[in-house]
């Protein structure tokens, strides 16, 4: 055989080999991923389908339905609870963009919102994950670095302090969405920034990108007592999460898209929180934006948060 003729054949062989090697590695990881789920009692077909589940926005209606059913089955097996997973579409799609306003003269730092959120959104109790962090701020200063996150040994409000709860600001130009390498997080048509927990690869880059410390990572399998699980869930919201993925505040997508108020607002004992439709000129939030002194946190970063703070 002459070399010139032999070369292409062997090259083809080489690519074939490389191809098979690649396929072997791919199937190996798949098998490993699927096997670990199956070992935990998952049905083989469910585990396989979950592994190959498409991005939420690429799924057809039937595929979404199947995915929702799979999540319900998994929750039943893992937590022993019958949950309902929905994928309620954006509320009044054309003319609703959610906004939030918070009256910092009224917030007294009771942290009711923090734990209402934990219960509503099926947040891990151990290790703790909180979507809302209430900062105890020094009066006379807006320096976040002088804030105290861990107040609470004495009754609040304390003299000389004011309180600034921070959660996801649902930016119009979210740095996290820009940063995510897999498009696992995006802005919904109603302005809510959501995550597809089944698509996230857990690279932490959004945590790094977020200026509001709003994105939280499941370092471990989240632990929630069975009886405390909120069974009314949304695919993009409070459905049970797994380890190794990001999660964040979704303005209680499972509630607000049905017209209800977010859990943090309902729990607030001082009425400091206002939620509504920014596009509706006759809404409370619009009244506040148009008539009150408002500010946004770190507005200079040009992320256009849809979360305003105002004072009396």
């Amino acid at each position: 055989m002459t070399d010139k003729k032999a070369a292409p054949i062997s090259r083809r062989n080489f690519f074939k080999k490389a191809g098979t090697a690649g396929a072997a590695i791919a199937s190996g990881t798949t098998a490993l991923a699927v096997a670990s789920d199956v070992l935990e009692g998952e049905a083989y077909s469910d585990a396989l389908k979950e592994y190959f589940q498409k991005h939420y926005r690429d799924m057809s209606k039937d595929e979404v339905k199947a995915a929702l059913a799979r999540i319900e089955r998994k929750a039943k097996r893992k937590h022993g609870v019958d949950i309902t997973v929905e994928n309620t579409a954006p509320y009044a799609r054309e003319d609703t963009v959610f906004g939030y306003a918070l009256n910092i003269s009224k917030c007294k730092g009771y942290r009711k919102c923090v734990y209402a959120c934990v219960e509503e959104n099926n947040l891990s109790r151990d290790p703790e994950i909180h979507y809302i962090r209430v900062l105890e701020m020094e009066k006379g200063s807006m320096d976040l670095e002088k804030s105290n996150h861990y107040f609470g040994e004495d009754p609040v409000p304390k003299a000389g302090k004011f309180y600034l709860p921070v959660q996801c600001q649902h930016c119009e130009d979210p740095p996290c969405v820009k940063a995510c390498p897999t498009q696992a997080t995006w802005s919904e048509p109603d302005g809510i920034v959501v995550i597809d927990y089944n698509w996230c690869i857990g690279c932490h880059y959004c945590v790094i990108a977020c200026p509001y410390w709003a994105r939280h990572f499941n370092w471990e399998e989240p632990v929630i007592p069975k009886e405390e699980i909120n069974t009314e869930t949304h695919y993009l919201g409070n459905r049970p999460r797994e380890r190794g993925v990001m999660e964040k505040c979704t303005f209680c997508i499972q509630r607000t898209r049905k017209g209800k108020m977010p859990a943090c607002l309902e729990a607030c004992p001082t009425g400091a929180r206002v939620f509504g439709n920014l596009l509706d000129p006759k809404s409370e939030i619009r009244y506040i934006l148009e008539n009150k002194t408002v500010f946004r946190l770190k507005e200079e970063l040009n992320t256009e948060p849809k979360f305003w703070y105002y004072t009396d």
Binding site: K108, P127, R133, F151, V156
Partner: peptide
């Protein structure tokens, strides 16, 4: 929310302090 006879809202202990990664 405000007791009309004594409307000022009294200070109270907040809900538990969040546990950071250190504490966990």
């Amino acid at each position: 929310c405000h007791n009309p006879h004594s409307p000022a809202i009294k200070p109270q202990l907040p809900d538990p302090i969040p546990k950071g990664i250190r504490e966990i």
